[in-house]
Amino acid sequence: MITNTRKLLPVFTRQGMGVPLILVLLFVLLSVTSPHFLTVENLSNLLLQSVFVMVVAFGTMFVLTMGGIDLSVGSILGLCGGITGWLMMNGINMWFAILAGLALGTLIGIFNGILITKLRISPFLATFAMLYIARGLLLLFTIKEPIRNFATPAFKFIAQGKVFGIPMPVLITLVVFLLCYFLFTSTSFGRFVVAVGSNKEAAHLSGISTDSIKIRVYALSGLLAAGAGVLLTSRLTAVQPLMGTSYELDAIAAAVIGGTSMFGGKGSVVGVAIGAIILALVSNGLDLLAVNQFYRLIITGLIIVTAVGVERFTSSRTD
């Protein structure tokens, strides 16, 4: 147990240099191949591209480290962002609308956790079903009339404003990062998450309420997905029926690239942040290089496999 907790953040040690190395190599490659890459505007856009996935991926990292999976986060993002916009469009106070969106995401996460722990439905099936339920609810909200013309200047500022030249979404994501880092590395909750993912039976026998941990982790995942939904809604100032589609896959990719184990017991908040930036870097670089859309998924997949392979290789050499 103690050994596992010491491996929570292997990002800047010799053991975990694979992912930062991929990040540096991509950065250097794009700096050389595109004259537009190293501009303030482009780097700012790069950070903005990464933060929405990053916030979702923090929650996904907790779920994967615990040994679960959450395929519903993209739909939760869309639904909770949509509910926030819909409430504001109908004259509800901005802060109440935001709290309602966050509360809804948390409740959906709790419901996922209850399905998994009490009804013994597999995490894959439970969250896969919720993916469709949440997406269907969003479609119902948007089928009669689009959700738009609701954004007040204060709401726009959340994702479009700047403080000392730094975009607000970046500052908000930094706060979320610090909170998740503290929660994962410095609290009993974080240690219990790793313990449950490492060996559920041993964790149960040691007195950890594994069901409670699972429900709380899925609640956290839902909350963070909803938070990303509010941010994205503020950024777009409109809600589309397919908003958040594929975010669950991007979040899993960011977490796994960052060193989180798909089998549980190992995760890194710092690694997730790097993984999300790598995904944004790939997308941004392909845009700058005008790569044909048909090749993008292939190239992105190859880079993900390479990043994970390098990380696993460097880790195995020092284990």
Rank of each mutant, 00 (worst) to 15 (best):
F182C: 08
M262R: 07
I83P: 08
L23R: 03
I299Q: 00
N4S: 12
M168S: 15
L30S: 10
N90D: 10
L242M: 07
R135T: 10
A103F: 09
F111L: 06
P123I: 03
L289Q: 09
L102T: 09
V28E: 10
I298D: 10
L289K: 11
G59Y: 04
L174C: 15
G275R: 01
S72H: 13
K118A: 08
T245S: 12
V40F: 14
N149F: 02
T210L: 13
Q49T: 09
I22L: 09
A253H: 00
L21H: 09
K7L: 15
W86P: 12
S186A: 12
K7T: 09
Q15D: 14
S206P: 04
L223G: 07
T142D: 02
T318C: 06
S234Q: 06
W95A: 15
I274C: 00
G258N: 10
L30P: 02
L104C: 06
V305L: 12
F128E: 00
G190F: 01
L179V: 15
F96P: 06
L174E: 01
V170D: 09
I303T: 07
F124G: 07
S283M: 09
A134D: 10
L29V: 11
M54D: 15
G113N: 11
G285E: 01
L242A: 14
G113A: 06
N284I: 02
R191Y: 10
P10N: 04
E248P: 03
T210I: 04
N199C: 03
L183S: 08
G229W: 11
E201C: 13
T187Y: 04
T233P: 02
A97M: 05
V194G: 01
F157L: 05
L29Q: 03
L131S: 05
T117R: 15
A151V: 15
A273V: 12
L183I: 08
G105F: 04
A255P: 01
P241S: 03
A253G: 05
L224I: 09
T237G: 03
T106H: 04
C80R: 06
L71D: 06
G18P: 14
F155R: 06
A202R: 08
F155Q: 06
K214W: 09
I22T: 07
Y295D: 11
I108W: 00
S31L: 00
N42T: 10
S75T: 04
T33Y: 07
L179K: 10
S188T: 13
E41D: 07
P241Y: 00
T260F: 00
R191N: 14
V63K: 08
N45Q: 10
G264M: 01
L236V: 15
E248G: 03
V163I: 11
V217P: 10
I303F: 01
T233H: 09
N42Y: 05
L220I: 03
L25T: 05
L171F: 08
V51G: 12
L288Y: 06
Q240A: 11
L249G: 10
L77Y: 15
V73E: 01
A307K: 06
K7R: 05
E311H: 08
G81F: 10
L99P: 11
V63Q: 04
L138C: 07
D319K: 07
E145T: 02
L231C: 05
F124N: 09
P169S: 07
I158R: 03
I98S: 05
G265I: 09
A280V: 04
Y132M: 08
T142F: 00
F184Y: 13
F164P: 11
T233S: 12
L115Q: 10
G264H: 11
T5A: 02
T106D: 01
